[in-house]
Design a protein around this nucleic acid. Sequence first.
DNA 1: TTTTAATTGAGACGCATTATCATTTGGAAG
DNA 2: CTTCCAAATGATAATGCGTCTCAATTAAAA
Lengths: 150, 150
Amino acid sequence: MTTHGEGSLKKVFRDNQLKATPQRLDVLKLLMTCSEHLDAEEIYQRLLKKKKNVSRATIYRTLEVLVEHDFVRKLDFGDGRMRYEQNQNPEEHHDHMVCQVCGKVIEFYNPKIEDLQELVAQNHNFVMLSHTMHIYGLCSECAEGHNGNE
Amino acid sequence: MTTHGEGSLKKVFRDNQLKATPQRLDVLKLLMTCSEHLDAEEIYQRLLKKKKNVSRATIYRTLEVLVEHDFVRKLDFGDGRMRYEQNQNPEEHHDHMVCQVCGKVIEFYNPKIEDLQELVAQNHNFVMLSHTMHIYGLCSECAEGHNGNE
DNA sequence: TTTTAATTGAGACGCATTATCATTTGGAAG
DNA sequence: CTTCCAAATGATAATGCGTCTCAATTAAAA
Ligand SMILES: [Mn+2]
Ligand SMILES: [Mn+2]
Ligand SMILES: [Zn+2]
Ligand SMILES: [Zn+2]
């Protein structure tokens, strides 16, 4: 469990010629200590609760910067808004299952699928830079209410 | 190469208790004779050129209906608008590679990946109802300009 | 032909995100 | 510690895709 001191967070920005403003530190710190997949509004509200006032515009701008520098991943689960999560280990890219009933997000990492994706790309002389794979359906809990054997 | 007569297109709607209006037939016919991945505005413009005036609202409504009844697939390539394609053989679900330079879309079908997706879902007691997998990067043509061996 | 519920078109509206711009500030230089 | 200015922020206007509203039209059943 990595404990990020204030200093190491500042380093994240300064190493990339970016000012380490309190607003940026607040957004980054929140994402680094959160396992959920938050959207911009949720980030705004959570910071508000902690008396950290960061304007929505700045949240969007900060997220853009963090995504550009690979500290954060931007995810689209198809519900009309983007979600964000820390990009812990970029080499072990995880994908997502999203329950269409309760919204729960389950993460998974499957090296076989990753390899096959790379293979498919190569077969088409396509240079893969990124990929997304989302499985939509019913989580185990929500599936119980939908089948006959309960 | 399936040639859809006007009559068979009407059947598509009537079989689902939907009025076979000229607007709906125009939208469906366009998609059935098109291999591209069009967005709503492109559909609107193409119909305009053919003197087929269908309002944007009706295009959206028709697409919604066609997607609901599995005649059309709705795709999100992450560029801020939805794209649509005919759903030829639902049992052989194809996925997409999207070139981030020229926008070209390459389709592929990989049964191994499909199987692994189902397996992953089962391992989490997750009922997979649908899935998306997009590979983003550079198509063969656009990659030439980006590497050193040209 | 009559009848009516479904559909359409025009435009208002919603909502996530981006752009604008005057004001503030991080941090480098001295 | 001050000075200084490009970078960053906040307030809010603007954008753009998509949905909603509602009066007028129409498919198609009777
Ligand atoms: Mn995740
Ligand atoms: Mn396709
Ligand atoms: Zn669920
Ligand atoms: Zn290309």
